[in-house]
């Protein structure tokens, strides 16, 4: 395998409630530079908690109880994410790892124009840029995701779900991060819009070469778009493998259950007993 980008080692997250919930249990996972890794599992399996935990975005009562996350920067420097101070962490976020969230509807601040929300990113992370440079960068980004530069002055509610998710992708792309974590980015969207956005992500990835962790419960989709897939259940990764291997030769019983839960679009009938 090519050089690693992110190494997660023995990572555990516990929700400190009574009784404590062990949401992520000793996960070890390696992501290669330029790779698309799928993280599949049902709701409550800990996949989102893992993704948030890596960026240290978890809020109380969630506590990272164990493990390390190492980010291998393009500069050759290795960053131990758990060891970063609060200010270093803040600067690290979005610059190296950005995220696209599930709720395209709620990811944008409803009372601010989308242009200003995009500019925010530059204002904070690239303070040396002039307002003019920021605006032109935002316009470029909106063109890049085919939303259109003139939409910079629109408010989120004036855009459709698909458009909003494109804006979020533009935002995630703003600082040219090395990794994008996508949490159910297309789940709320129609199948045609979903496909269009997937296509766009793929294009951008070819152009800018970032890695992707793609989190979803939609295993058939992952099988088509990822290099490798990690199957998660009750906080543990039960199986990791190349997409083709997961499809043709699943090792874990749960993987097989998940695979058989999806009726095949063109395959054999008989999944629904009729």
């Amino acid at each position: 395998m090519s050089e690693p980008l992110l190494s997660i080692h023995d990572f555990s997250v516990t929700y400190d409630v009574d009784p404590p919930v062990h949401a992520v249990k000793g996960v070890t996972l390696e992501l290669a530079r330029g790779e698309i890794l799928g993280l599949a599992g049902e709701s409550g399996c800990g996949k989102t908690t893992l993704a948030y935990g890596v960026q240290r975005l978890l809020k109380a009562p969630a506590v990272i109880t164990n493990g390390s996350v190492m980010f291998h920067d393009a500069s050759g420097e290795d960053v131990d994410i758990n060891a970063l101070g609060a200010e270093e962490m803040r600067r690290f976020r979005w610059d190296k790892i950005s995220m696209v969230f599930q709720g395209a509807m709620n990811s944008l601040n409803p009372v601010a124009q989308i242009g200003s929300q995009l500019e925010d990113v530059f204002e904070v992370h690239r303070p040396e840029m002039t307002p003019r440079q920021r605006r032109s960068e935002v316009a470029d980004l909106l063109e890049l995701v085919r939303v259109g530069a003139q939409r910079a002055r629109s408010f989120p509610h004036e855009l459709s779900g698909g458009m909003r998710q494109r804006v979020m992708i533009a935002m995630a792309l703003a600082l040219r991060p090395q990794l994008m974590v996508m949490d159910e980015p297309t789940t709320a969207l129609d199948v045609l819009v979903q496909r269009e956005i997937i296509r766009q992500i793929s294009q951008l990835r070819h152009e800018f070469g970032f890695s992707v962790i793609f989190i979803t419960h939609d295993l058939p989709l992952l099988l088509e778009i990822t290099d490798r897939i990690a199957i998660m259940r009750e906080g543990e990764i039960v199986e990791v493998g190349r997409a083709e291997q997961i499809w043709t030769d699943p090792q874990d019983a749960y993987t097989r259950t998940l695979l058989s839960s999806f009726p095949r679009l063109t395959g054999e009938r008989g999944v629904v007993v009729r």
């Binding site: 803040r90 976020r93 979005w94 995220m99 990811s107 944008l108 601040n109 925010d120």
Partner: peptide, 28 residues
């Protein structure tokens, strides 16, 4: 709300999340 998490994931300083994102909506 999700957009607060997004703002934090974006690396916004706390003061900015507090006033620019959270309070700006809560004050309506």
């Amino acid at each position: 709300e999700d957009y607060i998490t997004v703002a934090q994931a974006k690396g916004m300083p706390n003061q900015r999340v507090l006033w620019g994102y959270a309070a700006r909506n809560a004050v309506l």
